[in-house]
């Protein structure tokens, strides 16, 4: 199956600042791909490169099989784009905006439009400039979902929204998921953990990893080894152990390459251990561990595994 989005060594510089550094990723069709990273990591720049809003300095990207540098005009019939920073035609009413956009899309679904308007409780006669931020976001969502795009790209769509609006938008999004590939950026890990199928982590313009959410969750474990007597940190630790710390008789680390036989290996590695505790981690914990360690897991990414 061809990926909906594929990038190869995609790079973008602004002067001396490297915003996106040689990123290669693949977003499978039908997935909900979450691109996460701290503020300034390069998420928005990467999305703008994908949408042909910015031009790359090096590398290439394909979106729905089209070279991203050639995305224009009717290519956007199949792509929905919502960004927290996107301007809207503020002088129009919500209804006016939907009326205006409708003829642009040959596959605009009036029934779905009405459903979205009801679902998001949109005031059709109110001007966009008089709407709250959450309402504007919902209007933007409705105008981008009503034509049943094959790909929805969302740049920090839930940023600064109250939980109620956020849940409404996520609900609206998940309903579209079976027929649509969703690519979104966020720095709110808790919200994307609930519905994303794939995740990529961006740090200072570099993609540290990109893989399925379930694989990621399975791969990371919080490991606590209780030794029989105080012991210094072993000299040679595996590179996949993140944030190793010792205190008295306790050794604590995050195993970023946890496998089925990992418990047995740990037992053989620490024969005098009184107890070995292995706990699953939340996405938030995983990313904090990665961010603090300042490096990605030594395990190959999804693309590398595919290759």
């Amino acid at each position: 199956m061809n990926p909906t989005i594929r990038t190869e060594n995609l790079s973008k510089r602004f002067g001396r600042t490297v915003a996106v550094d040689s990123i290669s990723l693949a977003v499978p069709e039908g997935s909900i791909y979450a691109l996460v990273g701290a503020n300034g990591a390069g998420k928005t720049t990467l999305i703008k490169l994908l949408m042909n809003i910015l031009r790359p300095n090096a590398g290439a990207a394909q979106v729905l099989g089209i070279d991203s540098a050639k995305l224009a005009g009717s290519s956007f019939n199949r792509i929905g784009y919502v960004s927290e920073n996107q301007e809207l035609p503020e002088g129009m009413t919500v209804g006016g905006m939907l009326d205006y956009f409708r003829p642009f899309y040959p596959h605009w679904d009036r029934a779905l439009e009405k459903q979205l308007v009801r679902q998001f409780d949109l005031p059709l006669k109110r001007k966009l400039k008089h709407l709250s931020r959450g309402m504007k976001m919902k209007a933007s969502f409705a105008s981008s979902l009503a034509y049943r795009p094959s790909l929805i790209i969302l740049d920090e769509p839930f940023s600064g929204l109250d939980p109620l609006v956020r849940d409404e938008l996520i609900e609206g999004l998940i309903e579209r998921a079976p027929e649509t590939t969703i690519f979104l950026s966020s720095h709110d890990l808790a919200e994307i953990e609930s519905f994303s199928s794939h995740v990529g982590y961006l740090q200072q313009g570099r993609l540290l990893f990109s893989e399925e959410m379930s694989t990621l969750s399975n791969r990371f474990r919080d490991v606590t080894v209780t030794l029989s007597e105080p012991s210094p940190l072993p000299a040679q630790l595996p590179a996949t152990w993140l944030e190793p710390q010792t205190a008295d008789c306790v050794l604590h680390f995050v195993d970023s390459d946890f496998r089925e036989d990992s418990p047995r290996e740990l037992t053989s590695q620490f024969p005098s251990a009184r107890d070995i505790g292995i706990e699953p981690m939340t996405l938030r914990q995983i990313f904090l561990a990665i961010a603090k360690s300042g490096r990605g897991p030594a395990v190959s990414t999804a693309e590398e595994k595919e290759a």
Partner: peptide, 18 residues
């Protein structure tokens, strides 16, 4: 009303033919 400078305009990610 469809300004050409900047990267936040609503129309640049819509099916506009230039």
């Amino acid at each position: 009303s469809e300004r050409l400078v900047g990267d936040r305009q609503f129309w640049i990610t819509r099916p506009y033919e230039w």
